[in-house]
Structure formats: structure tokens, C-alpha cells
Nucleic acid binder design. Structure first.
Length: 439
RNA sequence: GGGGGCGUGGUGUAGUGGUUCAACAUGCGGCCCUGUCAAGGCCGAGACCGCGGGUUCAAAUCCCGUCGCUCCCGCCA
């Protein structure tokens, strides 16, 4: 018999249906048993008169909550039933997989175990609709990103995650055995994205894993995460990248708003808003001026940079002044940027780069890249790098590479901002950190 | 890598020197209840208070070390 979803039951009054789902609650009384069944569309009560089928009553009595069940019964209206005024009169029940008792924890309890413990039993934690919703929203976000890219002529690439040479810095790379050599896990698709520019792809994107060997113990870092990257050729400056980014993100927010606005309010208590375009922009110099006005004292050793406290302060300022969740901070000093960011012609101490902050959290770094071989090599040397290890990268810029720029965005960080999640561990399917390799 | 906080039955918490300090909630087991609905009632099992050492007549409670978790900083997405 064809499966019916719980949300569709009101159209099936009087009919026999088959439901599949999990046992949320069992109320086992003297003469009756009430089962609350949950599927991804809702909850419904199932009623069973014990004397009608004593054998079945015994099976039901032995069920553990969270057991996976297939049940068949007749849909009846019953005003007495508080759960939607509908119930199923049970006819047959199959235990697909009984849940052992006791459960490691009760996923639907008012008080939940701490996050680390829940991670051990992540599949139980994910049974709550609030958690499943995060990944439905992530799916929607990725689809909207792709739609926007594809409509704008982008090509999707999948760059390798195993690399032979440390690329950007080397310090944060995981080393892996590769037959009789050492290889490294990619900490960014940066160089491969740029290769696609030299290849004449003009506009490319990639959504894929990124590995960082940083022993970071914060609520916003992971050693493996999903990076969202794109790169565009023939730009005039980083302003073009920012202009594309804000329209792209607004499109993503629109798609999510259309589908999940009410659910986000219900489960995350967030009034989801599509951000207005353009996003506010601040130069680093302006950001410093604002921080000074707010009496935020930046540690002196952070010259030219922002610390997380400063980012939160700026986010707060932007929210109050412009009512906006996002702000581009642009024109960062070369001292705090990688060697491949392009310098301003009229002020070579500053780069044509930007960060995007969402609610005071850094979710993106982008820039126009330096595509002129001599200048790029000079900048690498100025950063104290030697050219030999990055020669393959430098070669991209020898045979007609167009001017280009792009960005990298942390997918889980974007979800944190969208849903106001307190930790990135809420926003990722399975967390990987310095002390977390399982499950 | 540096700093702060926390660590009590399966889970979440209370207790912060002794005398009802090992408690409460939830979950689990049993019994009861004419249809319950965050079900309810009664009974029961379950923690040597992370681990090691120390102070004290006396330690879950104070001190030191250690491990684990967590947050902040550094680093970044």
C-alpha cells in the first residue's frame, strides 16, 4: 500500500492509509494504547483498543520510543483529539526497527545533553525537525547559489583536494601519505580557481571541502568545512566582485525566505529578512574611524587588522546605523593580506580586497587578484616567499590571463548568520575539529 | 599555542567544609487508571559527586596536578 505522509491525512478521512515513521510517544493504558507517530511532515495519534488484538497490544507495549514503524489504519476525524482533530484507528503495525531502551538521550526532551554528547549520537540529535530544517535550508541555499551562477554563465569546477606542494602558506596544511611521498590536503581551491581564469573559463564556481590544520577551539572554526568559491574574469576592480556577491546573496536569501520564512521564525526565532542591495561598505580606514568613535580599543599589535571583537562592534554599528546585517570591509593593508591580492594603483600599501561580515561574523574574504606575472612575483618576494614552490601557480599568469577576482565563503558560517546559530557545530552535518574525528 | 569556565545517577540540574549532602526533574522497570493527549497516580532500580594527590577531626564542597568538555584570544571561512 502506498505510503501517506502525515500532513496529507486530512484529505484522507475515512480511508485506510499506511504511515511510516518513528514512535514519538507511547501512552499505554489499561484498555487502550495511544501511539504518536512522527514523520518528516508532522505528528499523528494512533489509537488501539487492546482487546481488539491482544497480541498486537503486547507488541506495542514492548516498543521503545523512536522505533521505526510502518502502520496501517483508518483515518477518522475526532474532535476530542488535540493533535489536529484526527487519529488513526490501528489495523496493523510492523516494527521495522525497534529502538533499544533506554535511548542514549531523549531527542525531544526539554533539556538536552550538551553538544559534545549529542555529537556522539548525532543521528538522534538530527531527528529533531529544528536540526533537519538547517539542512533543508542549506540545500535550498546551495540550489539558489547554483541557479544564480548558472544563469550568469558560470562553469562549475571540482578542483583536487590532494596537492603535491604546500601552496599558500604551508603552516595550516594537513600532510597525508601518498604512496612513497608526502601530499597535502587543499586548504583552499584558490590557485585552481585562478587556473580556470587562465584557461579562459571566465566565470567559475566550486562548492567543496576545505581542510585547515589550525588547532582552533572556537565556536566558528572547523578543520574541515565546505567552502563556497567563485572567481570572475575581466573585472575592473574588487568592486565588481562585491556587486556580484550582494546580488547573489540576496537571491539566495530570497529563495530561502520564500520557502522557510515562517519555519525560521518558529524554530530559530529569527525574523528572516532578505538583505537590501547594495550592502553597506566601509573602507578599513572608515572602520577604524568608527571603532575609535565607539571607544573600541584594538590591541596595538593588530595594526591594520580587525579582531573578532572589532568585527562584532562593526556589525552592531551597521545594524544600528543602516538596519543591515551585512557589511563589506574593503581596502585592507597588504601587510595582513596574502601576496596575490592586487594593490591599489594610487596607494600600494592597500589591497583591492574585502571581507564580508554577517552579523559581525566574518563569512567571506575576496579580492581582485594580481594577474600580472612580474607584479605577482614581486609581491610574493615582498611577503618573504620563495618563488620556486609556487612556480606552477605563477606560470598561470604567463600566457594571457585576464584580470579577475573572486571570493571564498564558509557555507556553515553563512548558515550561522542566517539562523543566528550560536555555534558552527549546529550548522554542520558532522563537525570536524582538532579533537573530533568521530563519528 | 595562550587564558577563563565547567566536570554530581542514562540525561539535565541543585547542593560549595560536617548535622535530612547525596536531592530534584526527566528517562528506565513494575503496578494502577473507560480515550489518553506535555497524560496522571503509587512503588522501585540507578551516582563511592572526572581521575590522582594534598589540607582538615571531617571534602562533592578548599588546594595542587592531570584528563575531558566548553568559551575567549591567536588564525581564519
Amino acid at each position: 500500500m502506498e505510503r501517506t505522509y502525515i500532513k496529507d491525512l486530512k484529505t484522507k478521512i475515512g480511508q485506510q492509509v499506511t504511515l511510516k515513521g518513528w514512535l514519538q510517544t507511547l501512552r499505554d493504558q489499561k484498555s487502550m494504547q495511544f501511539l504518536i507517530l512522527r514523520d518528516k511532515t508532522g505528528l499523528v495519534q494512533i489509537a488501539h483498543w487492546k482487546k481488539g488484538n491482544l497480541e498486537l497490544a503486547e507488541v506495542i507495549s514492548a516498543l521503545g520510543t523512536e522505533s521505526a514503524l510502518t502502520i496501517t489504519g483508518k483515518v477518522v476525524e475526532n474532535e476530542v483529539v488535540k493533535l489536529g482533530g484526527i487519529e488513526i484507528q490501528l489495523e496493523s503495525l510492523t516494527v521495522e526497527n525497534n529502538a533499544e531502551l533506554p535511548l542514549p538521550f531523549e531527542p525531544f526532551s526539554d533539556t538536552l545533553p550538551d553538544q559534545d554528547y549529542r555529537m556522539e549520537w548525532r543521528y538522534l540529535d538530527l531527528r529533531r525537525e529544528r536540526n533537519r530544517l538547517i539542512f533543508e535550508i542549506q540545500t535550498c541555499a546551495e540550489q539558489a547559489m547554483r541557479e544564480y551562477w548558472i544563469e550568469n554563465g558560470f562553469i562549475e569546477i571540482h578542483s583536487p583536494k590532494i596537492m603535491g606542494t604546500p601552496s599558500e602558506s604551508g603552516a595550516e596544511l594537513f600532510r597525508v601519505e601518498y604512496f612513497d611521498r608526502t601530499a597535502y590536503l587543499a586548504q583552499s581551491p584558490q590557485f585552481y580557481k585562478q587556473m580556470a581564469q587562465a584557461a579562459g573559463f571566465e566565470r567559475i564556481f566550486e562548492i567543496g571541502p576545505v581542510f585547515r590544520a589550525d588547532p582552533s577551539f572556537t565556536s566558528r572554526h572547523m578543520t574541515e568545512f565546505t567552502g563556497v568559491d567563485f572567481e570572475i574574469s575581466w573585472i575592473e576592480s574588487h568592486e565588481d566582485v562585491m556587486a556580484f556577491t550582494e546580488k547573489w546573496l540576496a537571491y539566495v536569501y530570497q529563495a530561502i525566505d520564500a520557502k522557510f520564512h515562517d519555519a525560521i521564525k518558529e524554530y530559530f526565532d529569527v525574523d528572516f529578512e532578505v538583505p537590501s542591495v547594495p550592502f553597506p561598505r566601509l573602507t578599513m580606514a572608515e572602520a577604524y574611524h568608527i571603532l575609535k568613535g565607539m571607544d573600541y580599543k584594538l590591541p596595538p599589535e593588530r595594526k591594520g587588522d580587525l579582531d573578532p571583537g572589532a568585527e562584532r562592534a562593526i556589525g552592531e554599528y551597521i545594524k544600528q546605523t543602516f538596519g543591515h546585517d551585512f557589511v563589506f570591509i574593503k581596502d585592507w593593508p597588504f601587510t595582513v593580506r596574502p601576496f596575490y591580492h592586487m594593490l591599489h594603483e594610487d596607494n600600494p600599501t592597500l589591497t583591492k580586497s574585502f571581507d564580508l561580515l554577517g552579523r559581525g561574523l566574518e563569512i567571506t574574504t575576496g579580492a581582485q587578484r594580481e594577474h600580472r606575472y612580474e607584479k605577482l612575483a614581486r609581491q610574493a618576494l615582498d611577503k618573504g616567499l620563495t618563488l620556486e614552490p609556487i612556480q606552477n601557480y605563477l606560470n598561470f599568469f604567463r600566457y594571457g590571463c585576464p584580470p579577475h577576482g573572486g571570493l571564498g565563503l564558509g557555507l556553515s558560517r553563512l548558515l550561522m548568520v542566517m539562523l543566528n546559530l550560536p555555534s558552527i557545530r549546529d550548522a554542520v552535518y558532522l563537525f570536524r575539529g582538532p579533537n573530533r574525528l568521530e563519528p
